[in-house]
Simulated assay, not measured.
Amino acid sequence: MPESEKSLELKLHSPAGVEAIIFHWPLTSGSGADKHDGAYEIVETIRWVCEDVPELKRAMEVNILSDYDTRSYESMRQLCDKYNRAIDSVLQLEKGTSLPATRFNKRPSRGMLKHILTQIYNHAVVDPEKLNQYEPFSPEVYGETSFELICQMIDQIHITEDDMFVDLGSGVGQVVLQMAALTSCKICVGIEKAETPCKYATEMDRLYTKWMRWYGKRHSEYKLMKGDFLKKEHREGITGSSIVFVNNFAFGPNVDHMLKEVFADLKDGARIVSSKSFCPLNFRITDRNLSDIGTIMHVSELSPLKGSVSWTGKPVSYFLHIIDRTKLERYFQRLKNPKLRVSLQGV
Rank of each mutant, 00 (worst) to 15 (best):
G111E: 14
M164P: 00
E3N: 03
K217L: 07
S14K: 09
G173H: 08
M112G: 13
Q333H: 08
P26L: 06
T295F: 05
L344Q: 03
T209I: 08
V244P: 04
F165Q: 05
N248Y: 11
E129K: 15
T145L: 03
S274K: 09
V172L: 08
G269L: 03
K130G: 10
V273Q: 03
T286D: 05
K35D: 14
C279E: 01
D88T: 14
I285F: 03
K306A: 10
V244N: 00
Y208N: 02
V166C: 12
F249T: 01
I157C: 11
F278Y: 14
V126T: 08
T70N: 07
R110V: 14
A264K: 11
I64W: 10
S98I: 12
G313L: 13
K114H: 06
M164V: 14
E3S: 01
L259T: 06
D155M: 12
E9Y: 11
V273M: 06
I243R: 06
Y83H: 00
D81I: 12
K276P: 04
Y121H: 11
I42L: 02
L8D: 06
T326V: 09
N282P: 02
D324K: 08
G294M: 03
L113A: 11
H13I: 15
V53S: 09
R325D: 00
D81Q: 13
K106M: 14
D155H: 08
G171F: 09
C188F: 07
P108V: 05
T97K: 11
A270Y: 13
G346T: 07
R71A: 14
H24N: 15
G30Q: 06
T295C: 13
E192Y: 01
L12T: 02
